[in-house]
Design a protein around this nucleic acid. Structure first.
Lengths: 232, 232, 232, 232
DNA sequence: AGTTAATCGAGACGGTACGTCTAGTCTTATT
DNA sequence: AATAAGACTAGACGTACCGTCTCGATTAACT
C-alpha cells in the first residue's frame, strides 16, 4: 500500500512532511460516508469534501477510491474475527466461522462485499483485498485445520485448502449472491453438515455460548445500499 | 423487467409498438462493448452510441445498465451449462460442475462476476441475477441430488441446499475472490474431495471426456478488465 | 395561417374531416399553460399533454409553437383595444392609446412581448404578428389621424406613419425593454407631450373617464415570466 | 493589529485563479457562432465545444446563455455609437441617432434584438441589457438634450426622458417589430419630423457627411436568423 | 353497404441539449 | 515539499423536448 512504505526507506524528508492528521481525517471521513452510502456511490470528491481536504492529497497517497476504503475499513476493523486459542480445533473453527458469519451479516459484510465488487473491475483492488483481508485468515484456518488433522483422523485432502474452501465459500457466496441469509441458523446448518461429512460430532451449539459481539463501536446506522437482502 | 412482458395478456398495444430490431441492436452493441470493457466502464451513453440508438430508448426499457447487461448476456448465452441427462447422477453432477468451472474461467465468468459486483450496490440487480441465472441451475442441481440420494445412500443433509452450496460455492468464490484459478485441476480436486467425503468413488476423470466446449461463438478477444487473475 | 385556408378552396373533403373540438382543446390548453408559464417555456409536448391530444395533431395544423400561441391569444382576445367611434379624433386616439397601455401592462402585454421575442429568431412569426395584431390597429390609427388632420391643422408629416410611430413606439419600447412602467402616469405624460408638440391642447384626462376595462375574462393569476418589471 | 493587513485586500484569491485565456476563448467562440446562428439556437454546449472548454466552466462564470452573449457582444463592441462632441446639440443628436440606426440595421441590431428577446422570459437578462447597453446611452442623450434645451428654447417636457423616448423608441420598435426598414431614409424622415415638431430646422443631411462607419471589424457574413426583414 | 382517405390518440424513436456531477490534473498561495 | 482551495477539460448522468414515425381506431364522403 501507499503510505506504509515511508517507514521502510529512511527517505530524506525534504520539504514539508506528510501530515498524519490529514491521513486520519480522510479515513475517518470515508468511514462516515460509508455508514450511509455504498462504496460505489462514495466519491473521492465526496471524501475530500467531508474531510476538508484537497482532492489531490487523496490522489497523492492512494491509487483508487477502493484503496482508501480498504485502509479506512482496516483502520477501525481492529476487532478482527479471531480464532479462539483456548478451544480444541474443532470447536475453535466452528466458533470462528460462526463469528465470521455474524460479522458479515451487518455493516462489515456490506463493505467487504463492495470491496470485492470493486475488485471485479480493478485487479489491484482484489489483490489488495486478498493480501490484507484474506491471507491472514486463511493461514490461521490452515494451521487450525492441520492441528485438527494431526489430533484426530478427519479425512483432510492432499491440499488442505480444499477443506478450507469448503468451510469458507458458502459464507462468501451468501455474502455476495444473497441467495440466503447470514444468520445463526445458517451457521449451524452449514457447520454441522460439514462436520458430519468429516465424521466428526456436531459441536454442541449452546456450549459455544453466544456469538461473541466484541463491543461494536461502529453501529450500522443506515446500512449502505444493502444488497443481498436474503431470498427464498 | 424489459422484454419479458407477459405475452399472455392481450396488451392494449396502443401507440406505436416497440421496435424489436432496436432491442436487438442494443443488446448486440452491449455485447460488443463487453468484449473489451468491464461492465463498470460500459456506459449507457456508450451503448446508445454503439447501437445507433437514443439514450431515452434504453432508459425506457431497462432500469439500469446492469439490467441491459443481464439481458444481453442471456440473449447470447443460449449454450447454458447443461446437466447431462444421459449420465448417472454422480457423473452428471461432476460433469456439470466441470463445465461450469470451464465456462466461468473465461469471458462469461468475467461478466457474471461483474454482474454480481454491480449487484452489491443495487439489490434489484442481484435479485435479477438470482432469478434469471441462478434459480434454474439450482433447481436442476437439486433434482439431480435428490435423484442421486434416492439411488444411493449418500449422506444428504435435511436441507439439500446445504450440499448444493458445498458444491457450488467454491466455484463462485474463486470466480469472485480470485484466490485460485478456475481450471480443470481445481475441478478435479474439488469434486473428488467432496465425493470422497460423501463416501462415493471419485468419478473416472478421463472417462468423462474432454470439457464439452459446445461451439463457443463468442471468442474472448480481449478480456474485459480481468479481475481475478490467479494468485500465489 | 393553417386552418383558415380550408374555406377558400372547395377542397375535396375526402377522409375524416378535421375535428373542430380538438382545435379548441389545443388553443384552450395553450392559454391555460400561458397563465403560469412563459411562451418560451411552453412546449408543444406540454400543450399536447394538457389538451389530451397527439403531438402530431398540433404539428399537422401549426408550423410552430409561436403560431399556436398567436392563434390561442387571438381566440380569446376578442376584446381588442378599440378606437372609440363616438369621440373626436384627438380624444379617440388618446383614449385608444391609454387603453392599449393599460392592456399591455398585464398578461396580454407579456404574451405580446413574448410573441415578438419568438419572432426575433423566426421571421414568419414576426410577420404573422404584424399581419394579425398590428396591421389592423395601424390602419385604424392612420384613418383616425387622417381624419384628425383634415379636421384640424396639426403638422402631419408627409408619411402619416411617422406620427403613428411616434405615438405607438414608446409603448412598445416600454413593453419590451421595461425601462419604465406602463401605467396611467406614463400614458398621460406621453400623450400630453406629443399633443403639446402637435400644438393641440392636452385632452382633459378625467373627462376621458376610467380606463375602459371591458370585462376581463382572463385573470392574470400568476403572470408568465414577467420580464419588464419596471426600472428606475 | 496584525490581522488588519489581511482585511485590507478583499480579494481572498485562494485556490487556482481564474484563467483569463479561457474566458476570452469562450467569448470569442460565442461571437463566432453568433455570426451564423441566432442567439436562441446557440447552446451552451455548442459554445463549450467551439471554445474547447468544459461546459462547467461556462456555468461557473455565467448564469445563462444570454449573459455570455451580452459579455461577448460588449467585448467586441468597443466601437459604441458615440455622441459627437464637436457638434452643436441638434446636430450631434441627429448624427448619433443616424449612426445608431445604421448600426442596428446589421449584425449588431440582430444581436441586440435577440438579447431583448431572451429578456422577455428572463428578467435578469433584460435588467443586464438595460444596465450595460442602455443606461450609458440614455445618460448621454439626456445630457445632450439638456444642453440643447439650455441653448435654444425647444419645448422640452418636464421629464426630459419623454423626449428621449420619442427619439429612440421608433428605432427600437423597427428593430424589434420589423414593420419598416432601418435605413437612412427612415433616419431622415424620423429625425426631421421630430425636429419640425420641436420647431427646429431640419439639419442639413448632407452636411452631416456619410454615416460614420468606424472600421467595422466584424463583417456580417451570414446574418443570424434575420428577423425583421422589412415589410410592405 | 363498402370503400377510401384523412384524422386522431398514443407513444416509440434518434437526436440534442439541459444542468449537474465526478474524475483526474493543474495552478496558486500558504505553511 | 505538502497542503487546501479550487479552476479546468472531459465526459457520463438521467430528463425533457424535438419532429418524425408507426400503429389501431374513427369518421365521413364517395362510390
Amino acid at each position: 500500500m501507499a503510505e506504509t512504505t515511508t517507514l521502510k526507506t529512511p527517505r530524506r524528508a525534504v520539504g514539508r512532511p506528510r501530515n498524519e492528521t490529514t491521513r486520519l481525517q480522510i479515513l475517518a471521513a470515508t468511514l462516515r460516508l460509508l455508514e450511509s452510502q455504498s462504496v460505489q456511490s462514495v466519491t473521492i470528491e465526496g471524501i475530500a469534501r467531508e474531510a476538508g481536504v484537497g482532492k489531490a492529497t487523496i490522489y497523492r497517497w492512494w491509487e483508487s477510491k477502493a484503496m482508501v476504503v480498504i485502509d479506512a475499513f482496516l483502520e477501525q476493523h481492529v476487532v478482527k474475527v479471531p480464532m479462539p486459542a483456548d478451544l480444541p480445533p474443532a470447536l475453535a473453527i466452528a466458533q470462528h466461522l460462526r463469528s465470521l458469519i455474524h460479522e458479515y451479516s451487518g455493516w462489515s459484510g456490506r463493505i467487504v462485499a463492495q470491496i470485492i465488487a470493486e475488485g471485479q473491475s480493478d485487479p489491484s483492488v482484489l489483490r489488495e483485498f486478498r493480501d490484507r483481508f484474506h491471507a491472514g485468515r486463511r493461514t490461521l484456518v490452515r494451521e487450525s485445520l492441520l492441528a485438527w488433522a494431526k489430533a484426530s483422523n478427519i479425512p483432510v485432502p492432499d491440499n488442505v485448502e480444499a477443506l478450507s474452501e469448503l468451510l469458507y465459500s458458502p459464507i462468501y457466496m451468501r455474502l455476495l449472491v444473497g441467495h440466503g441469509p447470514l444468520n445463526d441458523d445458517f451457521a449451524r446448518e452449514h457447520i454441522s453438515y460439514v462436520y458430519r461429512l468429516l465424521g466428526v460430532p456436531t459441536p454442541d451449539w449452546d456450549s459455544l455460548g453466544p456469538v461473541p459481539t466484541p463491543a461494536r463501536k461502529r453501529a450500522r446506522r443506515s446500512r449502505p445500499a444493502s444488497a443481498a437482502d436474503a431470498a427464498p
